[in-house]
Design a binder for these strands. Structure first.
Length: 289
DNA sequence: AAGGTAACCTGACTGC
DNA sequence: TGCAGTCAGGTTACCT
């Protein structure tokens, strides 16, 4: 479910309902997520004000000022199946509803069947939230001006991994999940099994550009469904993009008509067109003086 | 040190 | 209907 666009759309959807608001009560219904939820949080967050929200990679960040004036940040990861929505206080609690932020007129509710999501508290007295262990080693943000072909080229030139696997690793650029990794490589006409280090400089330019384009388009598409985050029936807060290759094995390529292929890389499905996406020939050895 | 792999969970779907 | 098997959009821990 949530790749970077879904996380950003979630943030845009909930922000107007939580920023500047006081948490009347924080309820842990089920603390069992990827890591157990800190049981001190209900006390810590009682009467805390959420000042603003941010995002780093696929982490949502809620900045808080507690009743005792302690400043901190909540790091929320949606994992594979997590979702956040704004509901009426009277809304029936569903199976897999884990957490409630109760405000005066509404509730922010976290739902996560597979429990791969997480919630961490970071005390800002311990330093900037970006120094949190979960955020410290993340790659650059895709919309950062410094993320360009140069950056990609510099960071993949030593990596022997397949480019699809390297993109997913999150230490080069964040936010490119399994769906968009396949989609981006298709748009760049790059075969997903190409060793990262053998990409040309031109292909790196294309990668950076298309990552920005694809993620931006997905966020904009999601923006039109923002209302789904409020008082939704809970079936889905996400949105369906049109995919060129993802989950289209056996169907015709939108460009050439040949069958889309499905392979497995690093235990994840990869989809591509074997005709449109060619492996890069290894660079010839360069002799230096 | 980089790369490969198992593991963490539940639910939806497929085929027998 | 039921049961077994497979798959799912993420990340970490551990091994080589």
């Amino acid at each position: 479910m949530p790749e970077l666009p879904e996380v950003e759309v979630s943030r845009l959807g909930i922000d107007p309902h939580i920023s500047g608001r006081t948490i009347q009560q924080f309820i842990i219904r089920n603390a069992r997520l990827r890591w157990p939820v800190d049981l001190d949080l209900p006390e810590r967050l009682s009467q805390a004000v959420i000042t603003h929200t941010a995002r780093r990679g696929k982490y949502l960040i809620l900045y808080c000022v507690c009743a005792d004036k302690t400043q901190g940040a909540l790091l929320i990861h949606l994992g594979m199946s997590g979702s956040l929505r704004i509901v009426e206080p009277s809304a029936a609690v569903q199976k897999h509803d884990h957490l409630d932020w109760v405000f005066d007129t509404h509730v922010l509710r976290y739902h996560d069947p597979r429990r791969f999501g997480s919630l961490h508290w970071h005390d800002l007295a311990d330093g900037d939230v970006l120094t949190h262990p979960r955020l410290l080693n993340l790659g650059i943000e895709p919309f950062d001006d410094a993320f360009n072909g140069d950056y990609v080229y510099k960071h993949i030139r030593t990596r022997t991994q397949a480019i699809k696997v390297a993109l997913l690793s999150g230490d080069i650029v964040v936010g490119v999940g399994n769906i968009y990794a396949s989609e981006v490589l298709f748009r760049c006409s790059i075969h997903p099994e190409t060793p990262a280090k053998s990409l040309t400089r031109k292909q790196c330019d294309a990668l950076a550009a298309n990552i920005k384009i694809v993620l931006r388009a997905a966020i904009e598409k999601g923006g039109s469904t923002l209302k789904d985050f409020v008082n939704s029936d809970g079936t889905s807060g996400y949105f369906q993009m049109h995919y060129n290759v993802y989950d289209r094995a056996g169907e015709p390529c939108t460009a050439c008509g040949r069958e889309i292929q499905r392979i497995v890389q690093a235990q994840r499905a990869t989809y591509f067109c074997a005709t449109c996406q060619k492996r890069t020939q290894p660079k010839s050895k360069k002799t230096t003086a």
